[in-house]
C-alpha cells in the first residue's frame, strides 16, 4: 500500500455522485469522470460502491502488463497512469483485463482513460478531487495513521482475491476488524448470476 492513498469505505457511501462530478474537473481528463459509482443490489438496497483505480502492486498493474503498446506507465511512487496518448491504440486489453473494471475507452479517439489518482494534485500533496468533495468520508485520502486518527480502531485491507489469485493494491478498503486477516473477495468465482446459482 502506498504511503498516502485513497481509503474506500462503501459503508459510508450515500451514492450522492459528488465524487463523479468532481472527477470531471480533474485536469488530465477534463469533462470526463473516471470514478465509477455502482449500486450492487439496485432496487433492493441503497448500497453504493465507489470504484477508483486500485493501483495494483502485485501483480503490478495487470492493465499495463496486457497492454500491447507499452502505453501504461507506472510511476516510481506506484501510481498507475492512464494510457500515454501517443502510444495507446485503443485495443481495450486493459479495459477487459482489469480485475476491478476500472479503465474506460473512447473508441473514436482510440484512447484509454482511467483514474490516475489525480496525479496533477497528489504529486503536489493535494487530495484527489473525489476525496476532496466526498461529504461522508467514504473516500478518504491520507496515510493509514491519519485515517486512524480520525476513525480510531478502523481496519483496512489492501488485498483482493479473484479465484485463486490475490491482488495487492495501492488503494485500500475499510473492512470490519474481524475481516482484516483475509483478503477481500473480488467477486470471482462467480457463484450467482441474476439470482441463479451457477456454482
Amino acid at each position: 500500500m502506498m504511503g498516502r492513498t485513497i481509503f474506500i469505505d462503501p459503508g459510508r457511501c450515500i451514492g450522492c455522485q459528488a465524487c463523479v462530478s468532481a472527477c470531471r474537473e480533474c485536469d488530465s481528463h477534463r469533462g470526463k469522470s473516471m470514478i465509477h459509482l455502482d449500486y450492487p443490489d439496485e432496487g433492493r438496497s441503497v448500497a453504493s460502491l465507489p470504484t477508483v483505480c486500485m493501483h495494483c502492486e502485485d501483480p503490478v498493474a495487470p492493465c499495463a502488463e496486457v497492454c500491447p503498446a507499452d502505453a501504461i506507465l507506472v510511476t516510481p511512487d506506484g501510481v498507475v497512469q492512464q494510457a500515454d496518448t501517443t502510444r495507446c491504440i485503443g485495443c481495450a486489453n486493459c479495459v477487459n483485463a482489469c480485475p476491478f473494471g476500472v479503465p474506460k475507452i473512447d473508441l473514436q479517439a482510440k484512447l484509454q482513460m482511467k483514474c490516475n489518482l489525480c496525479y496533477d494534485r497528489t504529486a503536489y500533496g493535494l487530495a484527489p478531487m473525489c476525496a476532496t468533495v466526498c461529504p461522508t468520508g467514504a473516500l478518504f485520502y491520507g496515510t493509514v495513521e491519519e485515517l486512524r486518527a480520525e476513525r480510531p480502531g478502523v481496519q483496512v485491507a489492501d488485498s483482493f482475491t479473484f479465484g485463486t489469485t490475490t491482488v495487492s493494491t495501492g488503494v485500500a478498503m475499510v473492512v470490519p476488524a474481524d475481516k482484516v486477516q483475509w483478503p477481500v473477495p473480488g467477486g470471482l468465482p462467480v457463484v450467482e448470476i441474476n439470482g441463479k446459482d451457477v456454482r
Partner: peptide, 25 residues
Amino acid sequence: LDLGFADWAEYCPRCKRVLRGTAYL
C-alpha cells in the same frame, strides 16, 4: 502473464464492479 483471473475477462467492467460490490456486501 500468469494473471490467474483470465475467466474474469468474460464479464463486462460494470459487472465486475457489481459482482465485487455484491461479494463485499
